[in-house]
């Protein structure tokens, strides 16, 4: 899984659903947590958290424009690409961290991804897990 450090900037709950905004590098991410205030008790404003998401849940965009519902975005540079028969693993440099995306080989080829290129990594808010720093 991808694992980055962040800091919670806002927490808002509606019944059993909680939305947390987390600052991470030069971007702000949103994560949805179920379980309302009780579950999210340890996730509070100002607290440091691990931001976790699976490589296979990271979509990539190049020359990205227009509107899209995914608001969790990392602007990174491709550091390496490993092409398999059906899958491709793309490693992005994001500040001091790396973010790994596993996408289909076809998409990788169609986008003509190359090392050194700038791309946007996108992750849905419900794919992000927050864990308190230990």
């Amino acid at each position: 899984m991808n694992r980055l450090k962040g800091r919670v900037t806002a927490v808002e709950s509606s019944g059993e659903l909680t939305r947390a905004d987390v600052e991470c590098g030069d971007t702000t991410l949103t994560a949805f947590i179920m379980g309302g205030v009780q579950e999210s008790r340890r996730i509070e404003e100002g607290s440091g958290v691990w931001i976790l998401f699976k490589e296979s849940e990271v979509a990539l965009a190049k020359d990205f424009s227009g509107l899209i519902s995914l608001r969790n975005r990392f602007e990174g540079r491709i550091e390496s690409i490993e092409r398999g028969e059906l899958l491709a693993e793309v490693v992005l440099r994001y500040g001091n961290d790396t973010i790994v995306s596993i996408i289909s080989r076809r998409a990788c080829d169609a986008m003509r991804l190359k090392i050194g290129e700038h791309v946007t990594a996108l992750v849905k808010a419900n794919e992000i897990t927050l864990m308190e720093l230990s």
Binding site: I33, R42, I43, T129, M131, E132
Partner: peptide, 8 residues
């Protein structure tokens, strides 16, 4: 299990 994760 040291890691505590909510809503999962």
């Amino acid at each position: 299990v040291k890691e505590r994760i909510g809503s999962s």
